[in-house]
Nucleic acid binder design. Structure first.
Lengths: 195, 195
DNA sequence: GTCTATATACAGATAGAC
DNA sequence: GTCTATCTGTATATAGAC
């Protein structure tokens, strides 16, 4: 309804600010300013900063999951899907809107926010693990690789790549990290092919 | 000298708080309380929060680098050294005192702090890259692996493992990520051995 | 539903006594 | 060198008018 325009703008501004600055460093005042909404509106629509942030984070996390699912859950060979996930174009210096929240101590102690963080990574892990299992059963990958372990390796390379890129203020370390991972996967698959 | 006891306690408290909470979330008041030192002492020894944090961060970063160097710069075979670096016992839920700072937007815009962050990762990267080059030249690893890329892959797995562990409040994802990485390195080395 | 005015707490730093 | 008192700004929230 028409009456929710302010609400929608508040949520969108919060999504952007959470991504850029994280939870603790995002103030209600900054959100209201960016949304061009007064203080009364915010406290009318939401009980406070936490509820607004939870709503915004939930939407961002869902969008992130859906994007991953598109790449990981289609009919192409399993190894190709994992590689396309690693090499996917990303806004490297902005980082991952989900992983970013894990470095904010306040998020970890705020149940509404922590739950979103945890469940999103659980769902991503399940998605990747499933693809890797397929890769092992089609003999694209050797049986020495445990899908449940390698799934976290893949997730960690992406999340860690963001950390390295920020520490250099340069996307290059991210690109090197994922390219190295792809080479490693291909070398392992190649060993398999010749066994 | 005796007169620097307060100074030393301030630095040590700052090191702990930076590790636990990051830079932005660490207040001078919290530092002084933990160090049991009054406000006047702090502003006598340091120009402010930034200078104190830089001093503390420099020491933590140096210690982190030295620990890595011990594992990566000794006489054992190159692949063993990389694997021992990955599998090294870590305080997973506390995270990496260096990588942690990369998620703090204020650190990235504070030159004294950013410089420490950047140079520390540069030195770690050089260390790992050197070991991997050795692994390729001794044919422990296939030439299809570019040391400069794989070095960032290794760094990213560790840094990303910390992110995943925090997002679950559980060290398990970190352990799975490094175990998966080791299996992948061995599979790649194995393919090499049989070529 | 939206606004401005106000309240309380804390961050970061300064002043000046001892 | 160290302390307490104080200052300015901002975070988060409430009150109450429109």
């Amino acid at each position: 309804m028409m009456t929710n325009l302010a609400r929608d703008r508040l949520i969108q501004s919060t999504q952007e600010l959470l991504w850029q600055r994280g939870y603790t460093a995002t103030s209600p005042a900054a959100i209201m300013k960016q949304a061009a909404v007064g203080q009364g509106s915010m406290y009318h629509h939401f009980s406070g900063k936490t509820e607004l942030a939870a709503e915004a984070f939930r939407l961002s996390a869902e969008a992130t999951y859906r994007k991953a699912k598109l790449l990981l859950d289609n009919g192409t060979p399993a190894l190709d899907r994992v590689i396309s996930y690693l090499l996917r174009q990303r806004d490297v210096l902005r980082g991952c809107p989900v992983g970013r929240m894990a470095e904010d101590a306040e998020v970890l102690t705020t149940p509404e926010l922590f739950e979103i963080l945890q469940s999103t990574f659980n769902r991503l892990r399940a998605l990747i693990s499933e693809v890797l299992s397929e890769g092992v059963s089609t003999a694209e990958l050797p049986t020495s690789l445990a899908p449940a372990e390698l799934a976290d390796t893949v997730l960690a390379i992406v999340q860690g790549g963001y950390v390295l890129a920020r520490a250099e203020n340069d996307p290059a370390p991210f690109e090197r990290a994922v390219n190295g991972a792809v080479a490693l996967l291909r070398a392992a698959a190649d060993g398999q092919a010749r066994s």
